[in-house]
Design a protein around this nucleic acid. Structure first.
Lengths: 355, 355
DNA sequence: GGAATGACTGAAACCGGTTTCAGGAAACCA
DNA sequence: TGGTTTCCTGAAACCGGTTTCAGTCATTCC
């Protein structure tokens, strides 16, 4: 039958000892061949070992290696919400970098749940991962601190205050400035920042603070802030009732989705009644209305960079904690083209073939 | 300084021996306490061990446990394209199930690349994972077969012919029937199936074959098939030039994205000129035009079910390979509402507030 | 020619756990 | 009382590798 019984640990795998016997040498020599000490071996022995390995199809057991060596070649990544496209994109960057350097990635999704975060942290620790990439709320500080003592740790997107590790993320003040500036230039005068509940998340707080600061610096703009909740529709309705040219600034992809949904439910014409600019660039942005203007984060670079930090630390770099801020790229689409007439005459200003 | 040096393996972690000494017992007793043999211990000793563990903050090393026991509590998952929302959704289901049963998930993304698939398979094997969930093209059959001898293996979405393992996925014939039936009922007479290159992918082939079969069964419908490529726009243009009421059937989310993009680029009015139904339900479907009608796959259930198969096999189930086909859910939105007049008069049939 | 050097190699200890096995103490039985 | 049986415990072997350390043998150097 094709389906075997795996419950009884019939692990009949070829071991180093098998190879050693076949080649007529000691385990030590095989180990040297496997490892980086091949230079220590004579050509004759190396050849015999190589043949034996080929013939038996031997593959060293990474777990066993890790036990003595302390190197498991495993990196852990703790993600707050695996269904957030931003997280996925960063994860993809991390994963690629891992593979390129011979590491594998253990992904743990906390679903924004503290208990899951706790469980995952415990599990990751028990697997002797060599480093950890963290993109969560970072409750369970005690566990994180403990892990930090044992391995390098890199934060992605969000700071966890008492942790001062390396931090890789977006230059939020710059991003907000670019967004607000763009809206101002396009002629919008009233801007609403829509964000998920900040909930102590540093990046969200930074965006919020920067937004307020930008408004304060610019006399021509007024604005307000709302958090995502069940009331979003009515809040937007209130905002839309204001006079003058209005735009939404969605602080991330989730907010952009929620806002677009709400606007649609309110019967708005996307995006003539109100402009919209969003952080993160999702693949459906071009499809809605005349396209949603976005600030794309270099997620691939952020992920790769996070792994790079880890690798540097693993190799002994003891420089003080770094902060790597990446700049977003402004991708202008139809949602920030103020219709002729300042939004009061939502006519055919945006031909439907516009992209 | 906050940043330590981790290059020198200063793994000063608390070990079982530390606990044993602190509690004044042998390693064996601690091991029994940790494992499921607590019943073997006297209350007095159990208490001392428990205290010692608490005081030292001991956590057993899963790698070491796995070495002797053969149980690493690690599940591998090989994903063809981590940026495909379907894969993510399934992965989320798998991950949740894993955690609930004390397993962790090692995710490997192949980016549809054969060489990466090879590397990942080798890595997974070296980590002594207990089971493998596969959602790739399954080239490198030799490696997969080898892994299959060592551990249970579950295929997701796509069959890999010579592998006959458990298979969890969509009931493709049923899905296609539901889609075609819906289009027919809505009054569409000419249907174009748009699919990614089949490239031997069983699910894509099944959808294609079922589509042809459905057309053959229904006298009122004609149809054709195209694969995604650079020519998509011009192919759609050709299709749109045909007479009568037309609809696209996108075989997955990627195809839906590409088609919507192409239609937009062609200046179509979404979706008056042409209807659209898509497999997979992505969160932006409601936002485009008057919403895209979808066949939602129960991805969470598929993921959980894949893990469940694995678990059964790990527990000794040797029944012949199973195939679990899930049914999709039809979610009707605006993209399959034929405008009054059979698509020849694309007027205000779809109020913009429609959802 | 004998000592010193260097290049390889293998035996054995070790990593951190699990498991076998044998033995001591207590309980049970006659 | 002696002989089992049962219960609990620890010593030691083991999992599959790595690493130390000592030893063999061929060279090289006076």
């Amino acid at each position: 039958m094709a389906v075997n019984n795996f419950s009884a640990a019939q692990r009949s795998r070829v071991t180093m000892l098998d190879v050693a016997e076949r080649a007529g040498v000691s385990k030590a020599s095989v180990s040297r061949f496997i490892g980086d000490d091949r230079a220590l071996l004579s050509d004759a022995i190396a050849l015999r070992i190589e043949q034996a390995i080929d013939e038996l199809g031997y593959r060293p057991n990474q777990m066993a290696r890790g036990l003595k060596r302390g190197r498991t070649r495993l990196i852990g990544m703790l993600v707050a919400d695996i269904r957030n496209p931003y997280s996925i994109a960063v994860m993809h960057g991390v994963e690629t970098a891992c593979r390129q350097h011979g590491y594998s990635l253990v992904v743990c999704n906390t679903d924004r749940d503290d208990e899951q975060e706790r469980q995952h942290l415990a599990a990751l620790r028990s697997y002797n991962i060599e480093g950890l990439i963290v993109n969560t709320l970072g409750h369970h500080l005690d566990q994180l601190l403990e892990l930090q003592r044992e391995m390098p740790l890199v934060l992605v997107d969000r700071k966890v205050e008492p942790l001062h590790s390396d931090l890789v993320g977006l230059d939020n003040p710059a991003a907000v400035r670019i967004a607000v500036e763009h809206l101002e230039q396009q002629g919008y005068r009233n801007v609403l920042l829509v964000s998920e509940t900040t909930d102590g998340t540093s990046s969200r707080l930074e965006r919020l603070e920067s937004f307020k600061a930008e408004l304060a610096r610019r006399s021509g703009l007024t604005g307000a802030v709302v958090e995502l909740d069940d009331e979003l529709e009515s809040r937007l309705q209130t905002f839309l009732a204001k006079p003058g040219s209005k735009a939404l600034f969605c602080a991330n992809g989730i907010a952009a989705l929620a806002c677009t949904r709400a606007l649609k439910a309110l019967g708005c014409e996307l995006f003539n009644d109100v402009g919209l600019i969003a952080l993160d660039d999702l693949d459906w942005y071009p499809l809605v209305g005349n396209g949603i203007t976005a600030l794309a984060q270099p997620t691939q670079a952020i992920g790769a960079s996070a792994f790079d930090c880890l690798l540097k630390r693993l190799r002994g770099d003891t420089a003080p904690a770094r902060t790597l801020d990446f700049l977003p790229e402004l991708i202008i689409r139809g949602s920030t083209q103020l219709p002729v007439g300042g939004g009061l005459l939502p006519m055919a200003a945006c031909p439907s073939a516009y992209l």
